[in-house]
């Protein structure tokens, strides 16, 4: 077992604290919160794609399921925000488990298409079941997070909450990266038949990982819903699933920091190029293509190779 490297989490904590202390403008704090949410989603996908070899082009669906479960429970039924998180997690976990049972037996292109199809079906349901979801015009009136007398309705407070959660998750990921599970998953990725002959229940393991990441993504969806207070199906379309694939790939598949790096870089694109917004997708597509073609391992992979060379 390798030594735990706490630096990524510490660096993130430091940067977030610096941002929180110096940036007073609500707008940029909001941008930071959204980027953190993207980063968490991309990291979740990275665990599937980079570690386990599960190609999922339907992560936006789980993100949306979480957002809608929390959104509807809060807006329509007036639940306390905090209580909706476990429901969102469990809801997505169960759905992912059910859907994963047949889907994860597929491989390669078939798996990609099956998850994509699942994502599209969920997207269409969000649009069509307007009696629950509010349909294409979206769901309004989502409440705020409030617990122990702390109120997270303001962007500054939300930024703090999100930062704490984000650093915590990064630390947990580092533990995962150094755990036995990591090696088990990479073994499954490199050869499923070999893992089977070693007595690993590959399907069961993949299923649990898939469902757990779905639940995790759903929790991010809840965090998103309570931050923006308005959700509509557009945010959970295929486009977002593909953006996540791009973030994970550009950042570096199979590296724990990959999802974060990719999300920060691609997440800042629309902010830095707000006037040249037309080029947003061009940058996404271009970076993605270049990374796949010429930079295996993405940015995190390149960085770690460089570091090894120096050492």
């Amino acid at each position: 077992m390798r030594k735990i490297n706490p630096f990524p989490a510490l660096i993130a904590a430091f940067i977030l604290a610096a941002v929180g202390l110096t940036v007073e403008n609500e707008y940029y704090l909001g941008v930071a919160v959204i980027i953190m949410i993207h980063a968490l989603n991309a990291t979740g996908l990275n665990i599937l794609l980079g570690y386990t070899g599960i190609i999922s082009i339907g992560q936006a669906a789980f993100f949306g399921i979480g957002a809608y479960i929390s959104g509807v429970l809060s807006a329509t039924y007036g639940w306390n925000a905090l209580l909706t998180f476990p429901v969102a997690f469990m809801g997505a976990f169960i759905i992912a488990y059910i859907i994963g049972w047949p889907v994860l037996r597929l491989h390669g292109h078939y798996l990609a298409m099956a998850t994509l199809g699942f994502g599209m079906i969920i997207y269409i349901l969000m649009n069509e079941m307007d009696f629950i979801t509010g349909g294409p015009s979206g769901l309004m009136g989502i409440g705020d997070i409030e617990f122990f007398g702390l109120y997270f309705g303001l962007d500054q407070a939300y930024f703090v909450l999100m930062s704490v959660y984000f650093v915590f998750v990064l630390f947990m990921l580092e533990l995962f990266d150094k755990s036995f599970l990591h090696y088990k998953l990479k073994f499954i990725k490199s050869s499923e038949s070999a893992s089977n002959s070693y007595g690993l229940d590959t399907v069961q393991t993949k299923l649990l990982v898939f469902a757990f990441v779905a639940g995790f993504t759903a929790v991010n969806g809840s965090l998103y819903a309570f931050f923006v207070h308005f959700i509509s199906p557009v945010s959970f379309s295929l486009k977002y699933s593909i953006e996540l694939v791009a973030m994970a790939t550009v950042g570096g598949l199979g590296y724990i920091t990959g999802g974060v790096i990719g999300a920060v870089i691609l997440g800042l694109v629309p902010e830095l190029f707000a006037s040249a917004e037309d080029y947003e997708m061009l940058i996404y597509g271009g970076l993605l293509a270049v990374c796949v073609m010429f930079v295996p391992g993405g940015i995190a992979g390149t960085l770690s190779r460089l570091r090894k060379k120096d050492a």
Binding site: H109, V245, A246, D278, L282, G285, L288, A289, M293
Partner: peptide, 26 residues
Amino acid sequence: LVRVKSDINLITVTIAASILLRDFAM
């Protein structure tokens, strides 16, 4: 031009290409 022609890479590169084609068209 894809160096490592694994399933994941080939899928991702055609997705990237579709984004680019769509965007050029736009």
